[in-house]
Amino acid sequence: MASTPATTTTGTVAHGGEAHGGAFPPFQSETFASQLIWLAITFGVLYYLAAKIIVPRLGAILADRASRIGGDLNEAAAMKAKAEEAVAAYEKSLAEARAKSQAIAQEARDAVNAKSDARRKAVEADLSAKLVDAERKIVAMKTSAMGNVSAIAADAAASIVAKLTGAAPSPAAVEDAVKTSIEG
């Protein structure tokens, strides 16, 4: 590639240092070989180090961190699941306990009711027995009282008749009369 003439700005003095006095350095072909060789050397070293050390090491660092974070996240999720499970189990047992306590209360209530029922029935039976007894006694008293009543009435009638008529009636006639008036 032929070197092009100097492209200097106006009013500048060309400082010739190279063989072509003020030529354009990027197009000076005699420098090409040197630059290419050194570029090959330095870039080759860089590529070798990058491939053997830098890329593997940095890749490993980032992969380690990602797996660590991933592991931690998974653990967090597992812990969360366990915590939720525990909450669910707790609430379930709470509900169970509540249900059980209600059942127990219900049982107790039923027992008490049964007992009071039984007692009531016993008392009722007792009372009705006593009632029957009392009725019997009343009937007995009544009959005996009624018996007395006819005797007293016969007495009273006899004395009344005696007083009224001056003659004492026969006891049989008085008895008859009392009996008819009571019955009729």
């Binding site: 525990a86 189990a89 059980k100």
Partner: peptide, 12 residues
């Protein structure tokens, strides 16, 4: 009579 439930899961 309420009885204390011992089945609370991990950590009573």
């Amino acid at each position: 009579m309420a009885q204390d439930d011992s089945s609370n899961g991990p950590g009573e």
